[in-house]
Design a protein around this nucleic acid. Structure first.
Lengths: 101, 101
DNA sequence: CGCCTATTTCAATGTTCTTGAAACATGGGA
DNA sequence: TCCCATGTTTCAAGAACATTGAAATAGGCG
């Protein structure tokens, strides 16, 4: 069983899912790290958390349409779907991530 | 036993709570109606939903710091805490509510 | 193949959502 | 004042979701 991940099409990205996904500070931190770095594997995105929890958070982000995950050898590289997000909800991602708290 | 409502101070309004509260379309609709009207009682804010559900949604919005509730006679009037929100998270509320979906 | 690393699935426990039914608050009569 | 109508909240039960340890899976390398 291979494992291509199930990403929503750009047009299917919903506001509910985006806001829910980003209402968790751990997940906001993942997105910020991905944006700053351009792409990280799951372990790099959040150290100090149990692997199953990290996997769960990545899944929520992926299913919401916030990140795209691709297997690269033994690891999974995640990137933020910035273009898709900005196309569908202009200004939203920045408005959320620039808030300090 | 009267019931003054428990509103968080402006400085205690958190991003997590805001995003979580607004990740529900019913609650976004409440906020939009309140903004358009300037203030509504709970029943007016969402018709066609059971009262207990309506009460729950208002509580989530209130505890997140999005709305202020005050009893006016037999009803409770709710207003959006726009100044507090714009002061704490500039541009956030508009960025979310202007998204079409 | 066997092992190692990276990640996911499974399962158990705890928390939150939805909603019917009952309770509570307030104001206005009779 | 006692009762009623209106508006809203609390309580309780079942469904849905979060957290995380343990086990399973995928890919790369010797």
């Amino acid at each position: 069983m291979s494992r291509t991940f199930n990403h929503p099409a750009a047009g299917d990205i919903g506001l509910d899912g985006i806001l829910h996904a980003l209402s968790d500070p751990t997940r906001r931190a993942i997105v910020e790290k991905l944006l700053a770095s351009g792409g990280l594997n799951c372990g790099q995105a959040c150290e100090n958390l149990p692997p199953s929890t990290v996997s769960h958070h990545h899944r929520v982000l992926r299913e919401a349409g916030l990140i795209r995950s691709e297997r690269k050898g033994v690891e999974v590289i995640n990137v933020v779907r910035r273009d898709d997000l900005d196309g569908r909800f202009p200004g939203l991602l920045d408005a959320i991530l620039t808030q300090s708290a």
